[in-house]
């Protein structure tokens, strides 16, 4: 039997085993997969080249293996932020007042996926590579703000989670009626607070010009990072906002088996 173009979307929809509210689940899982490959790839790169060429910033090999990586990271970050934020803004929904309850529920799920990807990036930046900073600076002399771990932690991981947090904020602002009418305070806190961690890098490196040989992790010079990450607790407020709206939306749906 021939398949006409009019029939195609219908047959695809009926074959799909993914429920309508989890339509973006495959993209979400791909996002997790891509980020995992990137972070593990960077850790393997450190394992291969940090001891061989990352101990002394005045060596030509440092320029070749580490500063080149830094320039590549900057380019990747610039392209990524422009394309993702540009896409989210230019594809915004201009008819939010006509959004059906089903579509709004689906978009709340997608927003939660965006925030989840954001927290996954926060994990790598705030947990794994952050502690690894201490480990590396106990075996290397930190004679530059661009050490073999900083190049990944400060100048790639931090911008990346900020971009993903900003993407979640933009998604909510451009696709969900409540977030478009008003600016969600907890979502803004949860995105802007951790952004200030990147700004604290300047304070941190300025301080380390005085104590450039020391890596005392609990020192007050690091507390700028700490205050920034407290704002991640704003996710509790985002959850409450989402749950209360989802309850209203579920009441608007008809019962289905």
């Amino acid at each position: 039997m021939a398949t006409t173009s009019e029939q195609l979307p219908v047959s695809l929809e009926s074959d799909s085993k993914i429920p309508w509210y989890l339509q973006d689940l495959p993209l979400y899982l791909k996002g997790f997969g891509i980020l995992t490959v990137i972070y593990i790839g960077l850790r393997l790169y450190q394992g291969a080249f940090a001891v061989a060429s990352g101990l002394d910033s005045s060596e030509p090999a440092f320029e070749q293996y580490w500063m080149q990586l830094f320039y590549v990271e900057l380019a990747v970050i610039a392209v990524f932020v422009t394309s993702v934020w540009g896409y989210l803004w230019f594809s915004r929904d201009r008819n939010l007042d006509q959004l059906s309850p089903k579509d709004e529920i689906r978009r709340y799920f997608t927003l939660t996926m965006w925030i989840s990807i954001y927290t996954f990036a926060v994990y790598w930046a705030g947990s794994y590579f952050a502690e690894q900073d201490n480990s590396w600076h106990q075996v290397a002399i930190r004679d530059t703000p661009f050490t073999a771990n900083h190049i990944i932690e400060f100048y790639f991981n931090f911008p990346l989670y900020i971009i993903l947090g900003g993407s979640a904020w933009l998604y909510a602002r451009t696709r969900l009626p409540l977030y478009a009418k008003g600016i969600s305070l907890p979502l803004t806190l949860a995105v802007v607070g951790p952004f200030m961690i990147l700004v604290s890098v300047g304070f941190n490196e300025w301080g380390h010009t005085f104590w450039f040989r020391e890596e005392f992790f609990a020192a007050p010079i690091h507390w700028g990072f700490v205050i920034g990450v407290w704002f991640a607790l704003g996710v509790g407020g985002i959850l409450l906002q989402a749950v209360s709206r989802l309850i209203e939306l579920l009441d608007m749906l008809e019962e289905a088996p």
């Binding site: 994990y123 947990s127 502690e131 507390w223």
Partner: peptide, 12 residues
């Protein structure tokens, strides 16, 4: 969220 944020707070 809690691995990332609580760990950073705790480590520093």
């Amino acid at each position: 969220l809690f691995i990332g944020s609580f760990h950073l707070h705790f480590a520093l």
